[in-house]
Design a protein around this nucleic acid. Sequence first.
DNA 1: ATTTGACCTGGAGTGCACTCCAGGTCGTAC
DNA 2: GTACGACCTGGAGTGCACTCCAGGTCAAAT
Lengths: 133, 133
Amino acid sequence: MSYSIAEAARRSGLSIDTLRYYERIKLLEPPARDSAGRRAYSDEDLNWLGFLTKLRLTGMPIKSMREYASLRRHGVASAGRRKAILVEQRQSVADRIAELQGCLDILDYKIANYEQVERKAFGVAPEMEGISA
Amino acid sequence: MSYSIAEAARRSGLSIDTLRYYERIKLLEPPARDSAGRRAYSDEDLNWLGFLTKLRLTGMPIKSMREYASLRRHGVASAGRRKAILVEQRQSVADRIAELQGCLDILDYKIANYEQVERKAFGVAPEMEGISA
DNA sequence: ATTTGACCTGGAGTGCACTCCAGGTCGTAC
DNA sequence: GTACGACCTGGAGTGCACTCCAGGTCAAAT
């Protein structure tokens, strides 16, 4: 199967402009073209796009995605480096999750404070309170 | 206690330029000044900075932090709205954690693939594999 | 035959969150 | 008394990741 750029955008969740942009900066192999010169994305293209959008969700900068994409073009010899990039990214995602958990605790604490203020009309103004207990 | 801008930067983890920038865009009340006109941050200023940096860690855009900061200046009457902002942000953090968890699973799957490729020198090239099992 | 709509290109513009700079003022150290 | 370092101001510049635009091509629909 092959897909128009509009269809590829719909399926990947990226905008048409972003697809062309990713191609320009070599995140994406230039897809095939139809007889009229329009892009025709393959299933493989869409799989790669799917993975790219996951990497993006992890917060990986485009620079690193480009490195990964470039290694991919260099075949199996680059597998070790590619794996290393993913392992590193895995760590950074795990760290980020821990960081966000910490933020969640602080938000919960602050929200609980506001709830206390709601229950009794007096008390310490929330903006005066420290962050930690 | 009061702190020079360098000390406030050190304690908040923000740069000196960022502190002045935050003041310019009204994330921060202009701190007191010493006799020479230099900024003198109070403990309260630092507490607020601490909370701001936590909000920043959650990915809250500056626009929203400014709204929160502005509400804070409008006193206790704005507590309801402030709480709502925090509750909303709490949700977005929880969503983001879930999203990152999903990414972690995909990374683990991909990494496991690379490990399989390492164990046997042949097999499907990793770049040909789908993302999901 | 022309209108429409999806697509094409190269390049310019946007929003965000800083970050840097030039030129100037203080207070202390020598 | 001057050299130094930390600070000040207004404003310009940066890096990132898009996003938009003008002007053009092409195939199908009216």
